[in-house]
Design a protein around this nucleic acid. Structure first.
Length: 591
DNA sequence: GCCGTTTTCGGCCCGACTGTTTTCAGTCG
C-alpha cells in the first residue's frame, strides 16, 4: 500500500471516529498522524526498515503499528470494522455546513437517517427540528446547505479566482476610508484551487467599506453584513468574505485568515511556548508564563519587544523568533521549523524567468504561429523560447511525423538566423510516450533537436505498475530532456493516471532528466507537494506554460506560484538560467 | 491517540457565532 493510500485511511479513521462521538483529541491524533506521515520525506518502506516510524512527531506506538500493518497487508481490521459500523452516507453529511460529528451522530442515532436524501426528507417532514439541540432554524439551515452544496459546492481554479479578486482588491484600496487591503485565504497561499475569496481591510470606518462591498454590481446575494464581517455570493456561486479591522489588528487578522488552519495551530503552539496566546486579534501574555522557557530564543535585533507595536506580518514572525514565512509556504509542512533556524529557501520570483519550453504552434494544435509566439516572448522580455509541438501519435492534435518535424527544425534554425525576434528559439518536440514506453519518433530525428519533452497522452487507465514502468522507460531514453505533465490530471475534472510519482522522481534523478512544472492553470502538474523531494534528489525543474496560443505564455505566473509552494529557488529552475547557460546545458546532454 | 528536564497522567489552539438554551454545546475558520 502506498503512503498516499495509508494517509487516506488514517484520515478516514479520524472522520469515522468523529461520527462515532469518540474523544476529539483522539480524532485529532489520527489527523495529525496522517499529516505527519504525508509530510515526512522518506518512503514508508524505508521508515519501517530503519525503525524510524514512531520517531515521527505525531506518530506513536499505536499509529506506527497500524501503518506497518497497512503497508504490509493493505488493510487494517480496526479500519474495516469501524467502516462497517458507520453508513457511508454519514461521511457525506459532514460536508453540510453546520453539521459536525456530534450532530450527524444525533441525526443518525435518533432518526436513523443514513443519507443526504433521507436527511432532506426528514427536514421537510419537520423531524429534525424536534431533536434536542436542534430547532427550526437548524433545520432550515441544513436544507439550505444541501441545496447550496449541489449548486455552489464546487471549488474554483486559482487562476480564475485571481482574475475575480484583483479588481475587488483594487476597488477596496481605492476607497478613502481604507488604509490597507489584502486578499487572504487559499488564494494568497496560491493553492491550486480556491473555495472562496477573503479580503482583509484596515480601516477606522468600516461602515462605508461594507456598504461599497455589498453594493457592487457583481454581488448576487448578501449572506451576512455586520460591523466587522460581510459575506456575499457572486452569480457564479463563489463566496466572497470581507473583514474590516482597526489598523493595529491588521497584521494579526491577515495572518489568521491567510491560514492555513494547520499553520495557525502550529503558530499558536509556538506562541504559547514563549508565553503568549495568539489569535486573530493579537498577542496577549498568558499568566502562567512560557510553557517552554528553554525554547524561547532571544528577541531578534530590531524586532518589536512589545506585541502591541506589531503592525506587519514580518514583525509578527520576528517577535516569535522566526524569519518571515511567505504565504505560499504556510501549510504546516515544515516551514515553521525551518523559519526558526533561518532555513527557509529564497523562493523563485515571477521576474526570474527568462524563457520557457513546451509551447505549441499552428504546426500541431496551437492557434498562434511560430512568429507570433516569438513576438510574445519578446514582449515578455524573454531571452529564449522552446517550440515543442505534438508528435504523430497525438493524431487528434495534428502531431508531427519525422518528416514534418525535420522541416520544422530547419524553419526554426532559419528563423533564428533571420533576426526577426530577439528571443532565441529552441527546436524541441512534445513526444508521445507510447503505451509500452517507447517514444513516438525515430531516434535519428530526436537527435537533431535541442531538447525533447516526453508526455503521456493515451492509455490513461493502465495500472500503477504498468504506467510507472512506461514512464521510466521513456525517461531512460537517451534523447529525453524532460518529462511533461507528470500525472496528466485536469484540476476539478479528472484524476491523473495512476503513476507512482516517487519512483518517477527517482528515475528522473538517476538519468539527469528534468521534470516539468506544467503551468497550465488546469494542470499545475507535477503537484507542489512533491517538489521539495524532487530537488532534494537533484532533479531540475522547468516551468512550462504548455501554451497553445501566444497569450498562454502568461500561464507561467501560475507555475511560479506553485514552484514557490514547492519551496523552489530560482537556481533549481532551468528557465531562470541565462541563454548561454541553457545552451551549454542542452548541448552538454549530447544533442 | 500523542506527548513529556511537567515522564505513566492529564493536558492537548483560539475566539466568534449560532441556535438553543436559561448558561452552553457544537461548529467554523
Amino acid at each position: 500500500m502506498t503512503k498516499k493510500e495509508i494517509v487516506g485511511i488514517l484520515e478516514e479513521i479520524a472522520v469515522l471516529l468523529e461520527i462515532k462521538g469518540e474523544n476529539p483529541f483522539k480524532v485529532r491524533a489520527y489527523q495529525n498522524g496522517a499529516r505527519a506521515l504525508e509530510t515526512v520525506e522518506d518512503k514508508v518502506a524505508d521508515l519501517i526498515e530503519s525503525d524510524r516510524l514512531d520517531k515521527i512527531r505525531g506518530v506513536g506506538d499505536a499509529l506506527a503499528k497500524k501503518i506497518v500493518t497497512l503497508h504490509e497487508t493493505g488493510s487494517l481490521e480496526y479500519h474495516d470494522s469501524l467502516k462497517a459500523s458507520v453508513p457511508p452516507g454519514l461521511l457525506e453529511m459532514l460536508e453540510i455546513p453546520g453539521l459536525g460529528g456530534k450532530k450527524v451522530k444525533a441525526i443518525y442515532g435518533k432518526l436513523g437517517v443514513t443519507s443526504i436524501e433521507e436527511l432532506t426528507a426528514a427536514c421537510e417532514a419537520g423531524k429534525v427540528a424536534d431533536l434536542p439541540g436542534f430547532g427550526p432554524k437548524s433545520q432550515t439551515r441544513i436544507l439550505e446547505g444541501i441545496h447550496n452544496r449541489e449548486v455552489y459546492g464546487k471549488r474554483h481554479l486559482w487562476w480564475h479566482a485571481r482574475e475575480v479578486a484583483e479588481p475587488i482588491l483594487e476597488g477596496l484600496r481605492g476607497l478613502p476610508e481604507v488604509e490597507r487591503a489584502e486578499h487572504a485565504g487559499s488564494l494568497r497561499r496560491s493553492r491550486e484551487t480556491v473555495g472562496d475569496l477573503d479580503f482583509i481591510v484596515a480601516s477606522d470606518e468600516p461602515q462605508p467599506v461594507m456598504d461599497w462591498f455589498t453594493g457592487q454590481g457583481w454581488v448576487g446575494e448578501v449572506t451576512a453584513k455586520g460591523e466587522t464581517k460581510s459575506s456575499v455570493r457572486m452569480e457564479s456561486g463563489l463566496q466572497v468574505d470581507l473583514r474590516v479591522v482597526p489598523s493595529n489588528q491588521f497584521a494579526f487578522a491577515l495572518h489568521h485568515f491567510t491560514g492555513s488552519k494547520e499553520h495557525n495551530v502550529s503558530m499558536r503552539q509556538r506562541a504559547l511556548g514563549r508565553g503568549y496566546s495568539l489569535s486573530e486579534w493579537g498577542l496577549t501574555e498568558v499568566e502562567e508564563g512560557p510553557r517552554d522557557p528553554e525554547a524561547v530564543s532571544p528577541i531578534r535585533e530590531g524586532s518589536p519587544c512589545d506585541p502591541a507595536e506589531i503592525r506587519t506580518e514580518e514583525a509578527l514572525f520576528d517577535f516569535l523568533g522566526m524569519e518571515y514565512v511567505p504565504p505560499e509556504l504556510r501549510e504546516d509542512m515544515g516551514e515553521i521549523e525551518s523559519a526558526e533556524s533561518d532555513g527557509l529557501p529564497e523562493l523563485i520570483r515571477p521576474g526570474d524567468l527568462r524563457g520557457a519550453f513546451h509551447n505549441h504552434t499552428t504546426a500541431s494544435d496551437g492557434s498562434s504561429t511560430m512568429a507570433e509566439m516569438a513576438e510574445a516572448a519578446d514582449a515578455l522580455g524573454w531571452e529564449y523560447l522552446g517550440i515543442a509541438d505534438h508528435s504523430k501519435a497525438s493524431f487528434q492534435a495534428n502531431g508531427l511525423d519525422e518528416a514534418r518535424l525535420e522541416k520544422q527544425i530547419t524553419t526554426i534554425r532559419e528563423f533564428n538566423e533571420s533576426g526577426q525576434a530577439n528571443a532565441r528559439l529552441f527546436a524541441g518536440v512534445e513526444c508521445d510516450i507510447l503505451p509500452d514506453g517507447r517514444l513516438d519518433l525515430a531516434e535519428s530525428v530526436l537527435e537533431q533537436l535541442d531538447y525533447v519533452v516526453v508526455s503521456i497522452h493515451s492509455s490513461f487507465t493502465q495500472s500503477t505498475d504498468v504506467v510507472t514502468q512506461r514512464m521510466i522507460r521513456a525517461i531512460e531514453h537517451p534523447c529525453t530532456t524532460m518529462v511533461g505533465h507528470l500525472t496528466g490530471r485536469i484540476l476539478l475534472q479528472r484524476e491523473g493516471y495512476a503513476v507512482d510519482v516517487l519512483r518517477v522522481i527517482d528515475a528522473a534523478a538517476a538519468n539527469g532528466v528534468i521534470i516539468e512544472l506544467n503551468a497550465n492553470p488546469y494542470r499545475l502538474d507535477m503537484d507542489w507537494r512533491y517538489w521539495r523531494r524532487a530537488v532534494g534528489k537533484g532533479v531540475l525543474c522547468s516551468i512550462n506554460p504548455d501554451a497553445h496560443e501566444a497569450v498562454h505564455l502568461s500561464f507561467v505566473d501560475a507555475g511560479v506560484r506553485i514552484a514557490r509552494k514547492g519551496w523552489l529557488t530560482a537556481g533549481q529552475v532551468l528557465n531562470t538560467w541565462p541563454l548561454d547557460r541553457v545552451e551549454g546545458y542542452l548541448a552538454g546532454r549530447g544533442r
